[in-house]
Write a protein that binds this DNA or RNA. Structure first.
Lengths: 186, 186
DNA sequence: GTGCATTGCGCAATGT
DNA sequence: GACATTGCGCAATGCA
């Protein structure tokens, strides 16, 4: 039991984790298919818009590793806000009225409702991401195991093939000798 | 060019992304090795301590999907803080003095220094995580491609083997006939 | 204990 | 306009 080449469940789940690109074509039960073009890579960032405020050009540095220099003391000032939440307000470089940005008072029920909803969405999204990552990892592991098995199988087949080829060549020689001269059964 | 079974670079990078468990044994240049035990799964959470404050038991629900209920209006009050940063203070359920928690005034240079350092560490850590995820995805894709190639190769070998076996069986029969009676060179 | 590393969470900007 | 993503900072916690 538990041979090779099967849908392997994890792969199935992984596929369902990538909506919008699941070119799922029903395959026969005897083939593992192995579709999934690229799907991964470029989840959505690095290819569209990004860098709202804090990101800036930091990404370029980090992509190559090290250089986690401090912000050079920017966008971290404890400004005296009128509402609450001294968090980022004039985050980006665009200067506006520093307070009460378009009358979205932090204490309005509207605001709290929106915040709470977003928080829920965020939790949900991150959970999804976590699951996706996990599935990808499991998938990679599974593919790796399958790979080992396949390589082993290839080894077996190759050896068997070599044996048969050897036997055949022997017979061929023997047959040629039989047809040409007498015999030299070495 | 670009045949199958090679170290494939991405895998190499992926391996280097998991320090502490890299059981790298030098292999010959002709084998792709394919080691990497489990490494993935259980990155560090879910197995040790967790749920500092906000998490609570929410995880159990989310693990199965849906149910992203709001916090039931908790730990989200806009408390009037004396220092700044009205962010979370009494985050968890543990009630304490609402202000100046153990004289770690938010404006102290000590605090800011620690915060900035942590921020840097956080950025670094997340960058690392992002790279790791990306590598895992690439690795999965690459393994998948390799898998397809291997399966193809197995198909070829199997067919070749079948052919040779057929030929051999024919010869065997022919040989048996030759040895027993006269000939029937069909 | 000090310092960095992880991680869940909320916020705001932005994408869909 | 609602929900989904994502970078960021904060705080708690893990780990060396």
């Amino acid at each position: 039991m538990m041979s090779d080449s099967r849908p392997s469940s994890v792969i199935q789940e992984w596929v369902s984790s990538y909506p919008g690109q699941a070119h799922l074509t029903p395959v026969g039960p005897g083939q593992s298919s192995a579709q999934l073009a690229q799907m991964d890579v470029i989840p959505y960032s690095q290819s569209q818009g990004m860098m709202r405020g804090g990101g800036e050009d930091r990404l370029a540095e980090q992509m190559m590793g090290l250089s986690y220099l401090p912000y050079s003391a920017s966008c971290l000032g404890n400004a005296s806000n009128s509402v609450s939440s001294t968090h980022h307000q004039s985050h980006g470089g665009s200067q506006q009225a520093p307070v009460t940005k378009r009358s979205i008072s932090k204490d309005s029920a509207e605001y709290r409702l929106r915040r709470e909803r977003n928080n829920i969405a965020v939790r949900k999204s991150r959970d999804k991401a976590r699951r996706r990552i996990l599935l990808t990892q499991q998938r990679a592991l599974q593919l790796q195991e399958e790979n080992q098995k396949l390589q082993l199988r290839i080894g077996q087949l190759t050896q068997e093939l070599d044996t048969l080829k050897h036997i055949l060549s022997q017979r061929h020689l023997q047959g040629a000798e039989d047809g040409a001269a007498g015999e030299s059964s070495i």
